[in-house]
Write a protein that binds this DNA or RNA. Sequence first.
RNA 1: GCGCCCAUAGCUCAAUUGGAUAGAGCAAUAGCCUUCUAAGCUAUAGGUUAGUGGUUCGAGUCCACUUGGGCGUACCA
Length: 542
Amino acid sequence: MKRYLHSLFEKASSRLEYLKDLTLHFEIPPNADFGDLSCNAALLLSKKLKRNPRALAEEILSNLEIDKSIIFKAEIAGPGFINFFYTPAYANGIIKKILLGGDSFGRTNKFEGKRANVEFVSANPTGPLTVGHGRNAVCGDTIANLLEWVGYKVDREYYFNNAGRQMRVLGDSVRLRYLELLGDEIQFPDDYYQGEYIKEIAEDLKREYGDSLRDEPAEGKFKNKAEQEIFADIEKTLSSIGIKFALFYNENTLYQDKKIENLLTRLKEKNLSYEKDGAVWLKFSELGNEQDKVIVKSTGEPTYRLPDIAYHITKFERNYDLIIDLFGSDHNATYPDVVAGLQALGYDTTKMKVLIHQFVTIVENGEIVKMSTRKANYITLDELVNEAKADVVRYFFNMRNISSHMNFDLALAKKQSDENPVFYLQYAHARICSILKMVSEQKLIASTDNLHLLNTEVELQLVKKLHQFSEEILKSALQYEIHHICVYLEELASIFHKFYTFCRILGAEKDLAEARLALAGAVKIVIKNGLNVLGVNAPETM
RNA sequence: GCGCCCAUAGCUCAAUUGGAUAGAGCAAUAGCCUUCUAAGCUAUAGGUUAGUGGUUCGAGUCCACUUGGGCGUACCA
């Protein structure tokens, strides 16, 4: 429909000069009295042309050659909006399109042939994933889904580091717990990993090797075993909420492949780095950032910025058209340096999109739970999934704008209460499935032959809501804002539940029943496809 | 101190490049199951969009300041 309206304005612009360099926006008005689509062109132009907006609207409207079979009414309202009203015949056409499109209705090929890389989670294997990681995991996966729905070929990627101080401490934590199991007296430092899982890993080692690891260094079997077991758990947790990564990129390979070394050379050649106090510094201040930062410590060890830049270079070398990083807000100070570095080296950073999500505040019994992997003070994602079900967890994280600070009330999540609207959506889907089962025993078959019989208020509303789905997908994908899908689905389900209450199928006259059946079938497809994007199941019964 | 993010109904959150009467769910109150699943529907109530000023035809949205919170601000990642 928007395409049609654009073409109308296109034609009119041959007579009205001022329409030529205007980017038109059609939006869905807040109120049905204002039509199905609304255009604020006159309001925008009135400022530029210094003319009365309503008069401008009159002039524009009289120059539009509207096809009455598509739009039966177009009128000026309020300060100068032009409101368009669809004919029911046009509106009903969407039902056929949806039934025809089926599982892929809503997909577009806008970005066909393009490749995207979405990096998310990227937690180092030092402990189980927490509820805090859940938001990153779910949102990242859903963004990847959305990109696939608009045509991208998407690689989900997990970046991790199994070297460095954190991992040394991890290995030594396991070593101490192992010695403890052998009966040694140990001093377990406060800043070591306190979690029970460390003891479990130590037990596994004892079972496997007996006491033969007494003189094993922390960074040998202890660290390796820890990494291996923790990573296995992380993958299992992710898989329990339907997330599977195509690629795991280990920071170590950057050293093995000499990418760090090469990067240092390039930075030096470009005169972007210098030595001071025995360390290597990068001239971030010259690149527009706050201050110069150390990239190689005086000990010879790189800081995280250097491998981060090297890592992103590999993404550019792998020729992605779109590179997405999803981080928690604790990274908001680090990514500008990485971007600046890449840009200085000549990479097209407009291909990159860094998304920052705000933290989840865990609330239990009215108190805020502070989480720390080190102190073993956390609630794992596993616990949450076990108690609240994967669908609830996914929906909960999907339904909020990632830039909003969200509270997660554990008690509520565990209760599986109506607080979580995912049931509302799933219930709508289950109700439709139930109807379909019923009618198959009768002699009713969904038909699009008599859609004009769908003429009650709620039926028309439902049809018009269906029109918006494809656009919601596209808009959400372009803005990387997944919560729009949830808002849309809740609105759709709400109208459907009204329809279910007021528009009976069984018992209605045959032609009407079959038309309503077609409408219900279309709603089922859209709800299922929407939930599919969110990674949430659409159950047939509840 | 400085930087980024945030503040909307009792609670959790929406609000389409700045647009029309700020909307949902939960909680509350009052109704609706002999008829396709009541995890549903209907109705009522709930707001100085943290505060003050500014920009303009028009501000929850943009700007300035104030207040309150989150995250950063390392030769940690």
